[in-house]
Write a protein that binds this DNA or RNA. Sequence first.
DNA 1: TTCAGGAATATTTTT
DNA 2: TATTCCTGAA
Length: 721
Amino acid sequence: MALDLSTLNLEQLEAVLHKDGPLLVFAGAGSGKTRVITYRIANLIHQHGISPRHILAVTFTNKAAAEMKERLQHLLGMSMRGLWVGTFHSICARILRESGRAIGIPPNFLVYDEGDQLDLIRQVLVDLNLDEKQFNPRAISNAISRAKERLITPEGYREQAYDFFERIVASVYPRYQSALQSANALDFDDLLCKTIELFEQHPLVLARYQDQFRYILVDEYQDVNYAQYVLVRLLAEAHRNLCVVGDDDQAIYSFRGAEVELILRFEQDFPDAMVVKLERNYRSTQPILDLAFKLVSQNTLRTPKRLWTDRTEGKPVTLTPVADEEEEARLIAEYIQREVARGNRRYGDFAILYRTNAQSRVFEQRFMRERIAYRIIGGVRFFDRKEIKDLIAYLRLLVNPDDTVSLLRIINVPPRRIGDQTVKTIQAYASEKGISLYRALTEPGLHARLPLQAQQAIGGFTALIENLRAYAPKASLTDTTRRVLEKSGYLTWLEQRKDAESVDRAGNLREFVNVVAKYEQTLPESEEATESPLLGFLQYLALISDLDTLDESGDHVMMMTLHSAKGLEFPVVFLVGVEQGLLPHALSETPRDIEEERRLCYVGMTRAQDELHLTYARERSYYGSRRACIPSPFLKAFKDTPMPTLYQQMYGTPPAPTPYRAPIWTPARTQSRFLPGQRVHHPDFGYGIVVRTSDALVTVMFPGGKGMHSFPLQECPLEEA
DNA sequence: TTCAGGAATATTTTT
DNA sequence: TATTCCTGAA
């Protein structure tokens, strides 16, 4: 069977057929980039007989990785076993698990996420007697992250630390590193740094991986940071079969250390590189592309290129001023309902893109009210919820009792009478003896310093952990998780406090058990035979994101940030909140930052296949207070282009005045009987106003100093007034 | 030590 | 607005 290449255009074909040597592909939005990468790999395997195990493909998300593997399997009709596809982080995690021992990293290391990082930095600040108020842990964490992205060691940082803040960071950084080490944990950046360290210190290990990865492909190369760049260079320098794909117009991650210059520099690094530009767009209509080009061509730092398409006909892009975010949501909901009712579209055809996660709330409320199916990507991730993180902390302790962050997280959750005082004593004892907190818990020397009550509480806690630890290796993942919930008393604790929030949380924990069960069921497909399933699961958890669990199959309106939308496409896109201060965001000040915000806007616009609608509000609520808004300066790029408003498109001329719609909240149409703003009556508190509702609870504000109260939906003593 | 409730405060984007 | 912080009572 021959690989069918007839559907590829000339440039795509060039990229696909290029076999050896460096290759740089500038792939504009919607230019069939994924196809090129997939076909290129398929061609290497099929045409040139390269074994999948000699190929490494780096993608931006785990989801993209899974999809690519699946497509290849489908295309070639053979198993892609041995092919490495994944994000930089997951690939590095895998390398370190295999070979990290050489630089003292045991294979059972855990990956700390941002929250864990912050917790650890706070601990270090306490150790150093630094006030958290004065030295923002987040800023310090960012500074350390920045340093690591540029492969700057604690020593290196100290040498170049000038101002006061940098000197503080210089003192925290080494301590933070040793705290990570004693917790047997790596943060996100360490995954990269340590892999590079491994390769630099052990040329033989590097040579082994170089020999394995004879062909390397890197997607989204415009969003690569220095450490990633170095890693790629190290791996590729032996065979020089490196193909990088990217688009400088879509570089939107400089806040994470990404440097667009690295893609622009590729031709200097590899003067013999073949360069292919993909400028034919298969996604959008000409009006959309024209407008997007008007915007992005204002940037100074870009390679010249312009997308073109066959789809010369298309609806005009609309630009609609709205009074505020409420009208914005109302208008869009109305348009969606209308299109769906007419049979033109399904909910899944629409996407709402915004700059900040907070903007999703108004849409969420509106859509709930109007019963429009929607999915929000990002925001508070399921795995970031307190109760879920607590449960994960228990699981982590079972794998690695030295994980201090996790230990401190749950040592008194649920409350088991191990309070602040006791914890301080434990910490003092542990650092005195140079042992981990968990080790300290088991030492008689510690107990001698504590009151009997605390001793007993600690004894109970260690017995619990030991019991669970003994159980885990013998049981399935799901059973272990259930047992943790049960034996720790966490679930009982939540269930006892009847308040509605706890009911929500208990529900989330049960949902988590389902996630575990699902993972366990699909486990056999994964090729890594992990010696400890629990460890494998935790490592999997650490690196997945919300986007990875997104399924586009359902019929929902998608709502997400512009960043999350990268790489996706939708028939109809609403780009909302195109206002000064929001897009570009107020925190982006330098010309460089502004250019990135412009690219962000460009990314959003180029997600649209058939229709693109822009909106900006004249007034908007910012953390409680209302503020007047100015349209985004980006819109000036469109001043010569007549753009109708969405109202005009819906009703024809003239522009309809803002139609006032009475909110529809008949009880029969709503899931929870209550809606924000509604007046209700309570037997004890009297009349109040519903502030908020969720799946399980309703929160009501009662006037006259009676305050806010939450009730479980099922059995709340409220009546509609 | 725990918990409730009011006060203070912080808000960009994410592997 | 929503979350965290802080205080004081049990």
